[in-house]
């Protein structure tokens, strides 16, 4: 296939050509068609341009390396799954040290407070609180869970949420205020829906 013919081919034909001959021209057309969409998704996930650019390049590099595994179907969907895996691995790697460090503390906290879970009243309150927490906006909800349930420190949460400690404290303060407001609202106003 001459390079100028590539533009007229479907994605799947281009992948087949790349699989057969390793033609860089075929892959270049796939790149041109899809990099912006993959970048946009990576940017939405990572929240910053530098990481999004790295993740996009990583996804295409992996697609190049693993093109022989593509068995037909929608190439863009296949590519998007690769990009998503790159994104997830990227975040996991960055979190891994924080998660490992906090894991023991969380278990210890759960053991310590196990006795406090006994009463029916506590269980009812906890279930209602869960509903209220899940009505909070994304950032507040995540910060509250990471701090009060998962047991991370302000600094760790700042690392996980890619913001500064001041912002984390502000999320937590606003969330507590909102939870209190929701709790003391009339009963019919509670439990309107879940954020997750």
């Amino acid at each position: 296939m001459r390079p100028e013919d590539y533009d007229a081919r479907t994605d799947e034909e281009l992948v087949a050509s790349f699989q057969a001959s390793g033609s860089e021209g075929a892959f270049a057309v796939l790149w041109r068609r899809h990099w912006a969409r993959i970048y946009r998704q990576c940017l939405a996930f990572a929240g910053n341009q530098a990481d999004a650019e790295d993740l996009t390049a990583q996804a295409f590099t992996r697609a190049w390396r693993e093109a022989h595994r593509f068995q037909g179907g929608n190439f863009l969907a296949w590519l998007a799954v690769i990009a998503r895996n790159c994104c997830v691995n990227h975040v996991r790697s960055a979190w891994s040290r924080l998660v490992t460090a906090a894991g023991d503390e969380i278990t210890a906290m759960a053991d310590q407070q196990h006795d406090a879970q006994g009463s029916q009243e506590d269980r009812t309150f906890s279930a209602e609180l869960e509903q209220l927490v899940n009505q909070l906006p994304d950032e507040q909800r995540v910060a509250v869970k990471l701090f009060f349930i998962d047991g991370y420190s302000y600094e760790q949460i700042a690392g996980l949420m890619q913001c500064d400690v001041k912002r984390v404290k502000s999320y937590l303060q606003n969330a507590k205020r909102k939870l209190q407001m929701l709790w003391f609202e009339p009963a019919e106003a509670k439990g309107k829906g879940s954020g997750t």
Binding site: L129, G151, L179, Q180, W183
Partner: peptide, 17 residues
Amino acid sequence: EGEFEKALERGFAGMRA
């Protein structure tokens, strides 16, 4: 409100469990 503050801790512990 004071009791609510204390209850929050127990509530989150329940969620953790």
